[in-house]
Nucleic acid binder design. Structure first.
Ligand code: MN
Ligand code: MN
Ligand code: ZN
Ligand code: ZN
Lengths: 132, 132
DNA sequence: CACTTTTTTAGAACCATTATAAAGTACATT
DNA sequence: AATGTACTTTATAATGGTTCTAAAAAAGTG
């Protein structure tokens, strides 16, 4: 298993559940956006196995803290996560309620001219709302 | 009352509650960011009057639909609104959990090079996360 | 005023998320 | 391999922001 080392190096024990969640999240051609519920369904379908919702929450939050997934700032009743952890931005399709990646190279350089005293910039994220 | 016309023109009856919420939201020197709970407290303090939480939700949503307040896309357990309805952006202070306005003029022009077929851009919002 | 429509309200319901605490697992030490 | 300890999983309960409900109140119309 290729994720055992990754988990151990993060101080997370490589449990069966964590390894399975790694497979679903990271063993894919393309990155994707998901809610906890999306992920739970994906796990049920892809693996013949149930993982409790509590564990899915715990694991996704642990992975987020380690930087293996990112939260996407958006107004929704559910929290959206992203397996694409590169600096990048998003379209949000208001009609289809769907996120679409917008690579950094698809957005001209963003210059923040204002500085806040004693604060460092942690991230800059652009959300482009689109509709029909 | 200067808000009676504004409400009537929007097809909203100028009730006592709506007029009071208008006062709290719009009778200020500066615009501000708020959650529904913030607003409820502000109403209790500023006016000697209680407005039911349901009415506050209803009114803020009605005002949002009319474009008198905006929702700010951010990950939080509560929804944040803004009385500044101009096109502008935000700093989000991760330590103090506070929003700070970033006027359009403080951000260089943003060029979105990617297009989505058949979709129009409704808004472009930048969130700059900052920390100590 | 009489009538209709909209609004307010207290309280219930909803539901994503977090907390709890008991049983199970990983792993270092013997 | 057995033991001990810390970590993890799990079912379930609790939390809390938001939405729904339905009855009373207020606004608008003529
Ligand atoms: Mn949330
Ligand atoms: Mn919300
Ligand atoms: Zn993305
Ligand atoms: Zn603002």
């Amino acid at each position: 298993m290729k994720y055992i080392e990754k988990l151990r190096n993060s101080g997370l024990r490589p449990t069966k559940q964590r390894l399975q969640i790694c497979e679903v999240l990271f063993d894919t051609e393309k990155t994707f956006h998901f809610t906890i519920n999306d992920l739970a369904k994906k796990i049920e379908n892809q693996l013949n196995n149930k993982i409790s919702l509590a564990t899915i929450y715990n694991t996704v939050h642990a992975f987020e803290k380690k930087g293996y997934v990112k939260q996407i700032p958006i107004n929704s009743s559910q929290t959206y996560f992203d397996t694409n952890i590169s600096d990048h931005h998003h379209f949000y399709d208001l009609n289809e309620r769907r996120l679409i990646d917008l690579e950094n190279s698809d957005v001209g350089p963003i210059k923040i001219l204002k500085k806040i005293n004693g604060k460092k910039v942690k991230s800059i994220e652009v959300l482009v709302k689109i509709e029909d």
